[in-house]
């Protein structure tokens, strides 16, 4: 039962912020022919508040943007953004979720900061430490479930991690 509750909490904290009410925009561009063209377009889009992830496909000329529902792209806005880059915006397709993204997708600065803050909070905030949620390898998944730590003794002091001596936890030499 404890595992079930912990799993539900983990699912809520890790999955919900990235998926709930997210919208995927497939922006069609003309004139992009190189990795830089994609990169400069991605940089411009990642500056927009609410944009979480951006991914470009050079061959199709499509830039995918995952944004929360607060973002409302307009053709006029996108035309202006890409005109500055020297490219031609030709339109967009809107999808209800961000299924077009994978783990290699570049996060927006805002989203990266948000997730980093969340990581810190989830992983090192004393108030939440009891959950045992950590993502030290940065792969977006927790390293261990909370109860796993009960059996760990990284610091070799004979006391399970996250026990009374939690200040020494993760002090693995």
């Amino acid at each position: 039962m404890k595992k079930l509750i912990t799993g539900a909490i983990l699912t809520f904290f890790l999955a919900a912020p990235a998926l709930a009410d997210d919208i995927q925009y497939d922006l069609k561009l003309e004139g992009i022919t190189c990795p830089f063209c994609v990169a400069t377009s991605e940089r411009a889009l990642r500056k927009i508040e609410g944009v979480k992830m951006v991914s470009g496909d050079l061959e199709t000329g499509i830039i995918r943007v995952c944004a929360d529902e607060s973002v409302k792209f307009s053709d006029e806005q996108l035309t202006k953004i890409f005109l500055k880059k020297g490219f031609t915006y030709k339109g967009m397709e809107i999808h209800e979720n961000c299924d077009g993204f994978d783990s290699t997708t570049v996060l927006s600065e805002e989203e990266l900061a948000r997730r980093t803050a969340m990581h810190d909070k989830m992983g090192h905030d004393d108030d939440l430490d009891f959950l045992g949620i950590h993502d030290h390898d940065g792969d977006g998944t927790p390293d261990h479930a909370a109860e796993d730590h009960v059996d760990h003794d990284h610091d070799g002091d004979g006391i399970p991690d996250h026990g009374a001596d939690y200040d020494d936890d993760h002090n693995v030499s």
Binding site: E30, T33, G61, F87
Partner: peptide, 12 residues
Amino acid sequence: YTLYKKNAVGKT
């Protein structure tokens, strides 16, 4: 100064 440009998918 760019006097003429014609963009298309994957080319310019």
